[in-house]
Design a protein around this nucleic acid. Structure first.
Lengths: 249, 249
DNA sequence: AGGACCCTTCCACTCAGTGGAAAATTCATG
DNA sequence: CATGAATTTTCCACTGAGTGGAAGGGTCCT
C-alpha cells in the first residue's frame, strides 16, 4: 500500500474510526476538508472512505452538503444496551410528571458528565444538556452531586486542573469548591445557581449503590423560580434512591 | 494484500460496516463466530477488526463475553440530527402527560415502520416497539395509519407479498386490509386490537404535511381497556396535527 | 477576472491486510 | 477427569487493495 504514505502503519479501520470520531456535539456537521483535518486522514483518503460510509448511511449530507452522522448509525447506537437508562427511565418520567420540569440522568465518564437520559416537555426551560452530550462536572448539579461522592484522590486531581468557567457564577476556586462538596455530601444533594447557564438553576442527587456513586439525577429550572427548588429536593432524592435500589438489586 | 483471498475486491471499510451491520434488534449480542458468519467476513479477519472496534468502544463485551454495540457508537448515534423527533417530542410528552399511556412516533422506512421516539412511564403496558426498532406496517397502528395515506401503487405492492402474522388477530387478507385502509383514510385514524401483540391494542394518527404522510403518532394500551381508546382519539389527532404544522412550517 | 476554498479524480508504488490452518482455550458431557 | 466439540487466538508468506500527493474543476465570494 501507501504510495506516498508519510505516516505509515495506520490501519484502515483506525482511519474510519477517526473519521467517525471527528464529529462531536460542538461540530455535528463538517465539510470534507474539515473532516479530513480533524481526523488526521489525508483528504483524498477521507474522500474515498467517506464515500463508502455515506453509501451505508453511516454518514449523510445535510441540505448544504456538509457531512453529519447518518441514520444508520443512530439506529445502530440504539442497540447499545444500557441497563441503567432502561430501569431509571420510569423514575425520570414520574419525576417529570409530578414536577413538570426538565429532569435528566448522567454518569461520569472520565472527568465529564455524560447525559444518559432526559425527560422534558413543552414548557420546560431550554437546557444545555443533551442526551449523549457531555458537560464538565463542577458547574453542573449532577456533576457536583457525583463528584462529592468520588474518592478523595479523584476529587483532588479534578480540582488540580484549570477549571472552565462558562458563567460568572461558576465556582472554580478549589477551596470553595471542596467546601461545597463537603456540604453536598452532608446534605445528600447539590444545588447550582447559574453556574453552567445564565438563567438556569438546578438540584441534583447522586444514585448511590453500596455507597458508590453510579449516576446522578438532576432537575433544572429557570432561575426566576429558584425558590421552588427546595420543595423539589425530596421527590428528587426519593427517585434517586429508587433508581439505586433497582440498579443495585 | 489478500494471502488466500477467495472473494477478492472487498474493501476493509465494507467489512467493518458488515460487522457493525450484523447486529440488529433480534440479535443485539453475538459471539465472534456468529458475527463472522452473519457479516460474511472470514473469522480471522473478523477477529482482528473486532479487536480494533472494541478498543475504540464501537463494540463492547457483555459479561458473558459476547459482543454488542458499544457506548461510543451510542454516543455517536445521538449526534445524528432528527428534526422530526426534536420537534415532535414535546407533543408526545404532552400526550403522555394527559393520558398516562405509551405514546410513540414512527416513520416509514422501506416496508417497515421505524420507531423514532417513544414516551412511556411506569404504569404503561410493556410494549414491543423500541426506539430505533422496526416493525411491519400492517399489524401496527402507526403502520396502518401511514399505509392508508401512501399512494395506491405502494399499497398494492405492500399487500402483494406474503404478510407476517404475529398474532391470530393480525389481518393479512389483502382485501380486508385494503378495506380497513379505506376506512382509516375516511376517519383519519387507525385502530388495532391485538394485531401485533396479544394483550395490547392501539390507536394511531398520521402526521400529514401537504397531504403526504411523513410519520404516524400512536398510543398503545392494554386490551382490557380497549373501550377507553375512542376518547383518546381526539387528543391523538390534535397532537398529530400539531406536529404536522410544526414540521411543515 | 482574480482569489480563496472546497471537492473530485488520477495513478504508480508498496506494505497493510489477508485468511487458511494450526494451536490454544473454553465448555459440555459421560 | 478424560474426551471431544466449539470457539477463540495466533501465525505467517503473499500480494492487490489502499494509498495520498498533485493536478484539475467547481463554486462562491469580492
Amino acid at each position: 500500500m501507501s504510495g506516498g504514505a508519510r505516516e505509515s502503519g495506520r490501519s484502515v479501520t483506525s482511519k474510519v474510526l477517526a473519521i467517525l470520531g471527528a464529529f462531536d456535539a460542538a461540530r455535528p456537521q463538517l465539510t470534507l476538508t474539515e473532516l479530513a483535518a480533524r481526523s488526521g486522514v489525508p483528504l483524498s483518503t477521507a474522500h474515498r472512505l467517506v464515500g463508502e460510509l455515506e453509501e451505508w448511511q453511516a454518514l449523510s449530507r445535510s441540505p448544504d452538503g456538509r457531512l453529519r452522522v447518518g441514520p444508520r448509525l443512530w439506529e445502530l447506537g440504539q442497540l447499545a444496551p444500557n441497563r441503567l437508562q432502561e430501569l431509571a427511565h420510569p423514575w425520570l418520567q414520574d419525576l417529570f410528571g409530578s414536577t413538570g420540569e426538565n429532569v435528566h440522568l448522567a454518569v461520569r465518564d472520565g472527568l465529564e458528565m455524560l447525559y444518559v437520559d432526559k425527560v422534558y416537555g413543552r414548557r420546560a426551560v431550554p437546557i444545555v444538556s443533551r442526551i449523549g452530550g457531555r458537560l464538565p462536572m463542577h458547574p453542573t448539579g449532577v456533576g457536583k452531586a457525583l463528584l462529592a461522592y468520588e474518592p478523595d484522590w479523584f476529587v483532588r486531581s479534578y480540582l488540580a486542573r484549570k477549571l472552565e468557567r462558562p458563567t460568572p457564577h461558576t465556582i472554580t476556586e478549589p477551596g470553595r469548591l471542596a467546601r461545597e462538596l463537603t456540604a453536598v455530601r452532608a446534605q445528600g444533594y447539590a444545588l447550582t445557581y447559574e453556574e453552567m447557564t445564565p438563567g438556569s438553576c438546578s438540584a441534583a442527587a447522586p444514585v448511590l449503590v453500596d455507597g458508590r456513586p453510579v449516576a446522578a439525577l438532576g432537575i433544572v429550572l429557570s432561575s426566576r423560580r429558584a425558590r421552588e427548588l427546595p420543595r423539589l429536593v425530596e421527590p428528587l432524592r426519593a427517585a434517586a434512591a429508587g433508581i439505586a435500589t433497582a440498579y443495585g438489586g
